[in-house]
C-alpha cells in the first residue's frame, strides 16, 4: 500500500475538509498541491476512497433507474409525436417496454436493498428538446443518442458494483440497450454495429 505524505498546510485544513469526505487526491487539489494529487493515483487503485464513504450499490442503481425513467418518457414523446410511422413506431413502443422492465427491476432491487427508488418525473419536467424533433429521423437519432449513452453508463457502472449479481444484471440490461442502439442505427441507415467495442 502506498504511503501518502501530507504537507502540514493540508493537515491544517484537514479537520474541516475531512467532513466533506473527499479523497486524498481531492484534498490535495483543494490545497493547490497538484504534485501530491498526482502522487495519489494509488487512491483509485487501492480503494482508499471507498474507505471514506463508498458510492453504494443502491446509489448506482438509483442513478440507473433515473436514466431508465427518462428513457421511458423520451420514447413516450417519440411515440406520441406523430413523426414515427409503423413499423418504426411499434419498435419504439417495444423498446419503451424494455426500459419499463429495466426500471421495474431496478426499483424492486433498490427496495430490496433497503433504499428508496428515485421517482419518475413528469414528461414536461425532463425538458426534452422537442423543438429539435421535426422529423422521424430526428426522433430516431434522439433515441439512438440516449441508447448509446445508456450503454456507456452501464458499462461504467458495472465495475463499481460490490455485488456481482448486480453487475450481471447491469450487463444484461447493457446488452439489451446495445441492441436498441444497433437497431436504431440501422433504421437511420447507419452501420448498426460501428465498432468491435463499446465505450
Amino acid at each position: 500500500m502506498s504511503k501518502i505524505i501530507v504537507p502540514a498546510f493540508v493537515l491544517a485544513r484537514r479537520s474541516f475538509i475531512s467532513q466533506a469526505m473527499l479523497s486524498a487526491t481531492a484534498i490535495a487539489l483543494l490545497a493547490g498541491n497538484e504534485a501530491l494529487a498526482a502522487s495519489n493515483d494509488g487512491d483509485k487503485q487501492n480503494g482508499a476512497g471507498e474507505q471514506l464513504a463508498a458510492t453504494s450499490d443502491v446509489e448506482i442503481l438509483n442513478t440507473a433507474l433515473g436514466a431508465e425513467q427518462e428513457a421511458i418518457a423520451a420514447y413516450q414523446v417519440g411515440a406520441e409525436s406523430g413523426l414515427l410511422k409503423k413499423p418504426v413506431r411499434d419498435l419504439a413502443v417495444t423498446f419503451q417496454g424494455h426500459h419499463k422492465a429495466h426500471a421495474d427491476l431496478l426499483a424492486k432491487t433498490v427496495k430490496k436493498l433497503g433504499g428508496t427508488p428515485s421517482e419518475a418525473k413528469t414528461v414536461a419536467q425532463y425538458h426534452f428538446p422537442t423543438d429539435k424533433l421535426k422529423t422521424g429521423t430526428d426522433v430516431l437519432r434522439f433515441a439512438a443518442t440516449l441508447e448509446k449513452g445508456a450503454v456507456s453508463a452501464y458499462l461504467g457502472a458495472i465495475p463499481l458494483f460490490a455485488n456481482r449479481d448486480l453487475a450481471k444484471a447491469a450487463g444484461s440490461i447493457l446488452g439489451d440497450e446495445a441492441m436498441h442502439w444497433a437497431v436504431l442505427r440501422q433504421a437511420l441507415g447507419e452501420a448498426p454495429v460501428p465498432d468491435a467495442f463499446v465505450s
Binding site: S23, L52, T55
Partner: peptide
C-alpha cells in the same frame, strides 16, 4: 475516477 475522487457521489461511473 468519480467515486474515488468524491466518495459518495451519485455518479456511479468507473
Amino acid at each position: 475516477n468519480p467515486t474515488g475522487f468524491i466518495p459518495g457521489t451519485r455518479m456511479g461511473y468507473a
